[in-house]
């Protein structure tokens, strides 16, 4: 099977890869670029563990083909903490003990950051609906929601 050559940007870096026509972006990230932060929980777009940003849009990378990202900008969980500083969402997830096993955490980080970039002051209900596509089986979501609201408050410069 002949492979497709793709040039794209991942976390700001120019990368090139070869992929099979049917290979998902998630497979490319994990198997070809060694970025295993995005997880495959379902492969059908139901769990959100593979969430990444594609040209500024939150997507389930298991539903995007690798060949589709030619010339695009992909952002993954690995690109979120910079210069040794965690993003407020990451920091608050830790402070609130908002992860237990941690498998959904990368997807939650990516999705919550995307929310706060669109909506700096979301209500609890808005956070809950935005994250409804990110399944977590450990926490019951309580601490995740609090962490995201707290991160939003910190980013706005107010204390929660």
């Amino acid at each position: 099977m002949s492979k497709i050559h793709v040039s794209t940007y991942v976390n700001g870096d120019a990368v090139e890869f070869l992929c099979e026509p049917g290979e998902t972006l998630l497979d490319v990230l994990r198997d070809r670029l060694n970025l295993t932060g995005a997880k495959e929980g379902c492969g059908t777009g139901d769990c959100g563990a593979c969430s990444v940003m594609l040209d500024g849009r939150l997507v389930a990378s298991c539903l995007v083909l690798g060949a589709e990202v030619e010339g695009s900008a992909v952002e993954t969980v690995e690109g979120i903490a910079t210069d040794d500083a965690l993003h407020p969402v990451q920091k608050k997830l830790l402070e609130h003990a908002a992860l237990q096993c941690g498998i959904c955490t990368p997807g939650i980080v990516v999705a919550a950051k995307a929310l706060l970039e669109k909506n700096a002051d979301p209500s609890e209900e808005e956070v809950r609906y935005w994250l409804a596509g990110n399944l977590c089986r450990c926490t019951g979501y309580d601490k995740i929601i609090r962490a995201v609201l707290d991160a939003a408050a910190e980013m706005r410069g107010v204390s929660a």
Partner: peptide, 18 residues
């Protein structure tokens, strides 16, 4: 803060398929 927390919020933690 849990000792394995940083790895888990940054995507470094190695799970079964990783």
């Amino acid at each position: 803060i849990r000792p394995d927390g940083l790895d888990k919020v940054t995507g470094k933690a190695m799970f079964g398929a990783d």
